[in-house]
Structure formats: C-alpha cells, structure tokens
Nucleic acid binder design. Structure first.
Lengths: 222, 222
DNA sequence: TTGCGTTTGAAACAGTTGTTTCATACACTT
DNA sequence: AAGTGTATGAAACAACTGTTTCAAACGCAA
C-alpha cells in the first residue's frame, strides 16, 4: 500500500512537484471549476492517476496548492523592505502600502489571485487554510492608523480607517484580471506600483488627518 | 417552428419569467459553473427543455439574466435620492457614495454580486453585455473629484483619486459574500450603510484636500 | 370541431467530469 | 538475483454535464 505523504526521498522536481506547479498556475488562471484534472496532468507531463496518487483527488491537490502558495507568499513578503518603528508615520505607511501592493500585483506569487477567487466565490475545499491570511500586515496597518488618529480615537473609527486604506490596495487584487486584460501599466512596471503606493499613502494620510483627534501629529505630505 | 423571442402574449410570470428569476438567484449565489441547468429548472418548476426552448441554452439564459439585472439595477438606482449640482462638495460626494454603497450592499439587486463574479473570473459568455456598467456614476464621481482638486490638477491625479474613492466602495461589492458569512452589520441595517458612507466621505475629503492644488476650496468636515 | 402554431413533458444523447482499477516499471535493500 | 515498497501507465468506470429528440398537450382562430 502506497503512503505518498510519507515519502522517503524528497522527490525534488518530480511528478509531485510538477503537479503542484502546474495546478497552481491553472487554478490561478481559470479558477477551480474551470480547471480540469486532465489539463493539469497534461501540463505537468504526468498521468491522470498521479493526482489521486499524490493528493487523493482534485480537492486535495487544490488544498496542497493553497498551502504551498501561502508559504511561498510568506517568504516573498519577508524579503521586501520594511520601515522601522521609529520612522515617521508617512514612511511607515508608504512602506506598508508598497509592500501590500507589490504583493497583490506581483506575477511571481499566485496567492493574491487565488485568494480573490476564493473570497468572491468560496469553495468548500478550504476549511483550515483560510485563517492567518495577512494577520501580521493587518496588525501593522492598525498600529499605523492608531498612531495617526491619536489615542482618543474610537475603535470603530480605527477599523473604518484601516479598511479605507486596505480597500485601496485590495482593489488591485480583485481587479487584477480585468486590469491586466486592459493592459494596465501597474502590472508591468515597478515604477507604476511605487507611484500608486505614493498616491494611496498621500490620499490616506489626508483622510487620516481629517478624522484625527489630534490634527497636528501627522506631517503634511508634499 | 417556434420563435420564442417574438411572443404574442407577454408571458407574465410564466415559465420564461420563472426561469429568469430562479437562474438569477442561483447564478448570483453559486456562480455560473456551479449552477446546473437541472437546479435551475427544479427551482423554476419547469422542464429541462424550457431553458433551450426560451434561451437557446445555458449561456443564453445567463446573458438574459445579466441584461435583465442590468435593467433592474438602473431603475433601482434611479429611485435613490441624488444631490443637486449646486450643493456643496461634501453633500454631493456623500450622496454619491451612499448611492453606490446602497446598491453594492442591496439584497434586492443581484447585479453587484454577478458583476463581482464576472470581474474576478470573466466568462466568455459576455461580450456585448459588459459595457455601460456604471458610466453615469463614474462621470459623476470624476466631476466631484475634479471640483475638489481644482482646475490645475493633472489628469492622472484625478484618476487616482477617483479610484481611491471608488475602491473604498467596491471593497464591499467584492467582499459581499465573505462579509455576509461573517455576519457584517452592513448588510442588515441601513443605518450602518449610512454611517459607512459618512466615513468614506470624510476620509476621502481629507484625501482630496491633501492632494488638492487649491487647499481651501474644500470645507472641513466636522 | 378542425387545424396550426406554441408550449410542455419524459427520455435519451453525446460529451466531459473526477475517480478507480490493475498491470507494469522502477529503485533499492537483502 | 530476488524481493519489496514505490511510482507510473493505459484503460475503463460511474456520475454528471448541457443539449437534443420527439411525442403529447395546450391555446386559439377559422
């Protein structure tokens, strides 16, 4: 009896790895239902049986892809530059926004695309994968917003402002497919991403200042 | 030979209408691929053949549903209150934001849900349906942003600011399914929607003021 | 009623889906 | 070399997909 989850030799770039790679690309491109197992195995150069052999089925493969992309995204995001806690608010916010945007727009990671598909039309194949999606960045954003609004700001305002900032970034995650079809420059040049991050930062700083309880704590941009 | 598109009697609440209604609900709930024609006809109380008879197939039914929901959404949005052109900027913006949000969050129209599904994972069944989605509101938003930024603002800044405002609203269209599962109050009480619109307006006015070329034209909120 | 176009009904169709079966080839230890 | 657990391969499977077929029922004018 085969026990594929406990392999002896690591199977580097073997059939299992090729399946994960092909499936990630196809799932991200067409979504779960529009991707057939036959497309996957053809792309991976393996046999139909391989999916069931290594992952127990299409669902299992999908879950494995998500876990793998989550891990990859983590290491990808960790490599990006990050502002220090003692940096001025504008710098910290722009650093975070740029990091989120770069990730959402990145062609290297398929996670944002997979997540947007999953958020809009959740599959029942993900029960233990969904949590801990962007917890660290979410907390970082809340800290920045909290500093900008001042200590007297109510919790609801804090939530709303954090969401206003995040929504401006998430827009590009959700619209990724459409924008790419329309040939948006955001997905080609990193300069466009930086310019966009700069705008979102300036816009959001203005919004935060308008809702701040201590109006003079935030430096005026430009 | 049957010519269903040129019916003599209007077929009010007949099989054709029931099919459209059931299909709209199911497509909005599960998306195009996860909805089977057998589910639709069971929900509509008609026969399997009815879909092909009236709409030529599943795709034709989907297109008919989209056209119908587009028309319904138009009349729905027209009924909402609207600020006058001579009203102050804050009022015009909040009116528009509330209108967009109400529509995105509304349970009566299935269009936002269908659109978000289509934007994230476009089907090839929509070629002539997609244009003229929200042209009027898009222009209205650009006018408001243009007034806020002043005449000297570059076109790019105008685009970016309009998108920043819109993204804060669109967030709820895309996240609709997830937020509803989490029991977000936005989808139950209209007071929550108004509060949200008020926040987005205040936040955006702050952002617009920060990027304005004539800083004193926008009234300070609160 | 007769006739005719329209609508419904049940069944079957052809194609695709994910999955299973089972025989074979492989890698590696004894 | 023999044996054993692992991996691959081709074929077939059962279930489901959207669609088609064709006969029966209906509505309504002549």
């Amino acid at each position: 009896m085969a026990v594929p989850s406990a392999q002896v030799h690591s199977d580097l770039d073997g059939a299992r790895e090729r399946l994960l790679e092909s499936a990630a690309g196809l799932f991200a491109l067409h979504g779960y239902e529009r991707t057939t197992v036959r497309d996957i195995v053809r792309s991976a150069g393996t046999n139909l049986n391989a999916i069931n052999y290594y992952f127990g089925g299409k669902r299992g493969l999908y879950q494995a892809v998500m876990l793998r992309e989550l891990e990859r995204a983590r290491s990808f995001t960790e490599g990006l530059p990050r502002a220090a806690a003692h940096d001025p608010l504008e710098v910290r916010l722009e650093s975070l926004v740029l990091r989120i945007l770069t990730f959402f727009v990145s062609q290297h990671s398929r996670l944002p695309r997979l997540v947007s598909l999953e958020v809009v039309n959740p599959s029942d194949a993900l029960d233990d994968v969904s949590p801990s999606m962007n917890e660290a960045e979410s907390r970082e954003l809340r800290d920045i917003v909290s500093d900008a609004l001042g200590p007297a700001a109510p919790a609801e305002t804090l939530d709303e402002c954090a969401r206003s900032v995040y929504a401006q970034c998430a827009y590009f995650m959700f619209m990724g497919e459409s924008l790419q079809r329309a040939g948006s420059p955001v997905f080609s040049s990193s300069a466009a991403v930086r310019r966009l991050a700069s705008h979102i930062t300036a816009f959001s700083l203005g919004g935060l200042r308008a809702l701040s309880t201590s109006p003079n704590t935030i430096g005026v941009v430009r």
